[in-house]
Design a protein around this nucleic acid. Structure first.
Length: 801
DNA sequence: TAATTCGCTAGACCGA
DNA sequence: TCGGTCTAGCGAA
């Protein structure tokens, strides 16, 4: 057999146990021939042991055998800066994990390291290859002889994607895959947009493929996948719904689902707490998992993560939600079939759009963290940062930190680490406000002060670098965390520069995704360092970072005062200043310049904006409220922070009212207009004119209903709904209304779908929604609650010259 | 067992 | 019936 060379895009590295019970690596690569598999059976799983003495250890390990697991090879490790370190190889990952405990018991073994690094990840590290990059494989009949990454600035070739979505029968309950049929299946790709179904009435509807029955529906789906040969199959919640459902139904008909590489079928795989559906070669992309991650890190802010809400948030598209009862009705009566077809097709279309929208971001994140599409879209922040630090650790020849024991985790959780400093604002209405903030504060402190678990030292020479918490960080040698972050930070600055230069829309999209991925990594690093389960957790680092942060921001505020500004407010990394009449924007910028010359290299204070006016309110218990304010700039753009206006657990009517009031006060300086508006709204409420949709209060069900100690309104409403047969799951968003029926607020709470239009407690909405939303604001201007209810006094607020 | 802490507010619950 | 305390949820950074 001659040796062949293949070049292609690395989709994923997987592992397999072969016929000889050995672990082998399978690389799935997109080449000019489509997806190909290359096998490396020469790469053995291994771990490291720190031993008392190498020779003695090798002697003790000689002939080691436990439960059939044998050591294949022992080597001295030269690339890690660690004395007495040996590398122990096994023929399979199973043997490796079996042997771990036994190895620890040996006399010469002090501790084990890197015994839990997933084998395919190990392969990517050691071979220096990365998913989404191009690789060159030398192989004999697809058996890998060598593999390397090729330098190429070529963007990831367009991946061929296809989305699908199921509609299922649900007779008055959740669909049960054992009993209820798939009614329609939609497929959406650049090439085909079709709905497969098997009911006669659907024949005349556009975009349908009519088959004989459900079995043929599944067969047709498989046939289309085989024709299309997608590299990425997209679903929305396919991990827990579409794929498991499809699998169960296929089994019923004794059908296989050979839609992966080489006719392989989807396999259920545990991913942290959840299960995912994985295909070989072809990547299953569950857009719901992407959205969940983005919601967690606050890139998407959506009250609910169902497809309709997310699509509206992301694209501003209103998409109709067909209730399951309606789907059943359409199916049974055969009327309005086109609605079901459209709905089903819209589902896979918008799922496809979501994937397309966020794919560049996840691809960049995957490249940075050496994760394939399947993994990176289901990965957590701590996993991402872990992968970043592992790469840096290897570059520096340092061993990976081990994961903590459960006991250690508990200990860590008991002692939270003090966070940022929040200054109590000066309450009231203010004019001429400048806002400055530190660019990536925590990362820049980590870089500037070389904060890393392994750089904590007691060198005399490093005594200039002691944190306010009294911890000294080495100045001689760069740590893993700061080094990794410095590269990320610099790369981001570079990408942002390029972004400014280009006008090419396609390039812009990719560059923006890149800088965003880098930002995500930057922002989550501090959090993971103090995350109790993190490999590189360090309390010392965590408390030093926040202590430095508090010191720097307070210094900025002090210096501002000394320079003739008034320090108005500040939160963690930001500082708000009042600009006196004899100073202007450029004075603030000059002030920032001087601060920056005194700051260490990576740290930078930035000018955020100059605002015409802003309001800070007094709390119920007195004192000014932190984390709530509203600003308006000189172009009349409003920025509302922390107020009910931005909270999803307030009724729209109250939020809208508050937004309007803030606008009238900040923009026009006419609080009496705001008060007039409040009065009108109160009147509308009194007269029962307010539609149901404006009265809904949204909250999330955070735990199982019976686990609640306190039965608040949303739980009371949920309980009643469950009694009526409604299924509610942890994480679902509850929309409730306070009705007229009952005594306490909880008694009156009812899920909105069970409430008739017009049935609402007007006093509740006036006293507990409208008034609280505006009261604190108008009080700051000298008005009171009484002015909202009875006739108000007239006065103007600003003296416009 | 999915990155953190700080902070606000509502409403139930509990005992005087 | 009240006021204090605690649970709960969400947002800022």
């Amino acid at each position: 057999m001659p040796i062949n060379k293949s070049i292609g895009l690395l989709l994923s590295a997987e592992y397999k146990t072969n016929d000889e019970n050995r672990s082998e690596i399978n690389l799935y690569v997109k080449t000019s021939k489509g997806i190909e598999k290359f096998i490396d059976s020469d790469f053995l799983p291994y771990l490291y042991a720190k031993v008392t003495e190498e020779k003695k250890a090798v002697e003790e390990l000689n002939g080691f055998e436990f439960d059939g697991a044998k050591i294949i090879k022992i080597e001295k490790e030269e690339n890690r800066k660690e004395l007495n370190l040996i590398k122990i190889y096994f023929s399979s990952t199973a043997d490796l994990s079996k042997s771990r405990e036994k190895l620890r018991e040996l006399n010469t073994v002090i501790e084990l390291h890197e015994f839990d690094i997933l084998y395919p990840k190990r392969y990517l590290f050691d071979k220096g290859i990365t998913p989404f990059n191009e690789i060159e494989v030398m192989h004999e009949n697809n058996l890998i002889k060598s593999v390397k990454e090729i330098e190429s600035d070529k963007a990831v070739n367009e991946l061929k994607m296809l989305a699908f979505d199921l509609e299922t029968y649900s007779p008055g309950r959740f669909s049960n895959a054992e009993l209820d049929a798939i009614l329609t299946l939609s497929i959406y790709s650049k090439k085909i947009q079709k709905v497969i179904t098997y009911k006669k009435e659907f024949e005349k509807i556009n975009n349908t493929i009519i088959v004989k029955d459900e079995k043929e529906l599944i067969q047709k789906f498989i046939e289309l996948i085989k024709e299309e040969k997608p590299e990425v199959i997209i679903t929305y919640n396919g991990d827990s719904f579409d794929f498991p459902y499809l699998k169960t139904r296929a089994e019923k008909f004794k059908l296989k689902l050979p839609i992966g590489f080489n006719e392989s079928e989807p396999k259920t795989k545990k991913v942290s707490l959840f299960t995912a559906e994985k295909l070989l070669g072809v990547q299953h992309l569950d857009a719901f998992q992407m959205v969940k991650f983005l919601a967690r890190i606050a890139v998407i802010n959506s009250s609910s993560l169902d497809l309709e809400t997310v699509v509206e948030k992301v694209f501003g598209l209103k998409k109709e939600k067909l209730a399951s009862e309606k789907i059943n009705e359409i199916w049974e009566t055969g009327k309005e079939c086109s609605r079901l077809v459209e709905y089903n097709l819209e589902d896979s279309k918008t799922t496809f759009m979501l994937a397309e929208r966020f794919l560049p971001l996840f691809i960049e994140l995957g490249k940075l963290t050496k994760q394939n599409l399947f993994d990176v879209t289901r990965s957590s922040s701590s996993q991402n940062v872990e992968m970043l630090l592992m790469q840096e650790s290897l570059k520096q020849g340092k061993l990976f930190a081990n994961k903590p024991s459960e006991g250690e985790v508990k200990k860590r959780m008991l002692a939270p680490i003090k966070g940022g400093y929040v200054k109590e604002p000066l309450p009231g209405l203010h004019e001429r406000i400048a806002v400055m903030d530190f660019r990536s504060l925590y990362p820049s402190i980590i870089i500037s002060h070389n904060v890393s678990p392994e750089t904590i030292c007691s060198h005399k020479e490093c005594s200039k670098n002691i944190s306010p918490e009294g911890i000294c960080f080495c100045e001689k040698e760069k740590g893993i965390v700061p080094n990794a972050l410095e590269k990320v930070l610099n790369k981001r600055i570079e990408v942002k520069k390029e972004l400014k230069k280009t006008n090419n829309a396609e390039l812009k999209k990719i560059l923006d995704a890149k800088q965003h991925a880098l930002k995500i990594l930057l922002n989550s690093t501090y959090g993971t360092l103090v995350f109790p389960r993190f490999r590189w957790y360090s309390r010392e680092c965590g408390k030093s970072i926040t202590a430095w942060a508090r010191k720097y921001i307070q210094e900025v505020m002090d210096k501002a005062e000394k320079n003739g500004f008034t320090s108005l407010y500040g939160d963690t990394d930001s500082s708000f200043l009042l600009i006196p009449k004899n100073k202007n924007e450029s004075d603030v910028k000059k002030f920032i310049e001087t601060i920056n010359t005194e700051l260490p290299g990576a740290m930078e204070l930035e000018f955020e904006g100059f605002f015409k006016r802003g309001i800070f309110v007094t709390k119920k218990e007195g004192g000014a409220a932190k984390k709530r304010y509203a600003l308006i700039d000189f172009k009349d753009n409003m920025k509302i922070v922390g107020f009910e206006f931005v909270r999803r657990d307030w009724a729209i009517i109250a939020k809208r009212m508050q937004g309007k009031a803030l606008e009238l006060i900040l923009k026009e300086g006419t609080p009496e207009k705001a008060i007039q508006l409040v009065k009108e709204t109160i009147n509308n409420l009194r007269e029962g004119k307010v539609p149901k949709k404006d009265l809904i209060i949204l909250t999330q069900l955070k735990k199982p209903i019976n686990k609640y100690e306190l039965v608040g309104p949303h739980i009371a409403a949920a309980k009643k709904a469950v009694e009526k047969g409604k299924k509610l799951t942890v994480g679902s968003t509850l929309g409730f209304i306070i009705t007229r029926n009952g005594k306490s607020i909880s008694d009156k709470a009812e899920l909105s779908e069970f409430v008739e239009e017009g049935n609402y407690d007007k006093d509740y909405y006036i006293e507990h929604q409208i008034i609280p939303a505006v009261q604190r604001i108008i009080e700051e201007l000298g008005y009171s609650k009484q002015d909202l209810i009875i006739g108000g006094k007239q006065k103007t607020l600003f003296s416009f010259n």
